[in-house]
Amino acid sequence: MHLPEPCGPVSARVVEILSAQRAPMSADILAGGSVLTDRDAQLALWTAYEMVYRGFDDVDPCLEWDADLIGLRRLIEDRFECELRAVTADRVAEALARGGEVGDLVLGLVADDEGPHLSSYLRRDATTDQMCDYLRERSVQQLKESDPQAFLLPRLQGRAKVALAELQYDEFGAGDPSRLHQDLYARTLRATGLDPAYGAYISEVSALSLASANVMSLFGLNRRLVAAGAGHFAAFEASSSVPSRRVAAGLARLGLAPAADYFEEHVEADAVHEQIAARDICGSLVRDDPSLLGEVVFGVACALHLDALAGAELLSRWERIDARAARSEAS
């Protein structure tokens, strides 16, 4: 994989830093407005984070800890985190007021979420092009599925650590390389005629798809956000089992059953993982330190918020395309 083509001043700056063509950094490089939907900022953050994961063929790996790169990363992270805290504040406050056992609280928040029904649409109505669009957008996070959460492990202790390790053992194939979940996703891409290479669609996916992947790295790579990372992970797992069943059915409906293996696996796997993540990881964390409850719930709320935005984005994109097609048919 090579460095992506920049699409604005922030991603150009990250690429410039990684290409060792330095100029002094300016704090006002970021545009105003939402960072969640700012593709330039999210691509910049994704590219900066990628130095911690697989890097780029054309970049010196020593730049992983380059001070300029980390400085710019923190600049974007600050804005990203502030915005996430602002947009989730009400949901977090309501959940904390509701109280109750942590596992129940986390799973209840996910169950009560009234997001757009992207997976129902994929099951019943999506065309092959729309299904592929969905698979492409999600590839940014699924091809490194569970990698960001691996950074949580050394930051947890006791039962929470044991539970995360148990869950991740399953994510990473449970001893069988052919069951590694991120590779199952690559096989899904291949089976639908898409490019299974890591990073293949970076230049095409939306800001929100990048943000959905980046939030996991934000929580995984900043130790102070470990509880938010646990909450996010639990919500992510808890909003996967039923939607995975729908996506698998949608793929079968489109004659793409061979691509459904990844989703079939997640029906049963995530029915287990959501319980472990909510009760054993989040539950143990908060039992050991009750002050972490707010951060766990913040992580849950971030996952729900981004999932709702990303789902709504795809549904409205397809609605626009359908409307345009209908208009051109009528004319």
Binding site: A111, V267, E268, D270, A271
Partner: peptide, 10 residues
């Protein structure tokens, strides 16, 4: 998917 849970209880 009995005997396995598939999340339907939710």
């Amino acid at each position: 998917r009995k005997p396995w849970c598939d999340g339907t209880h939710k």
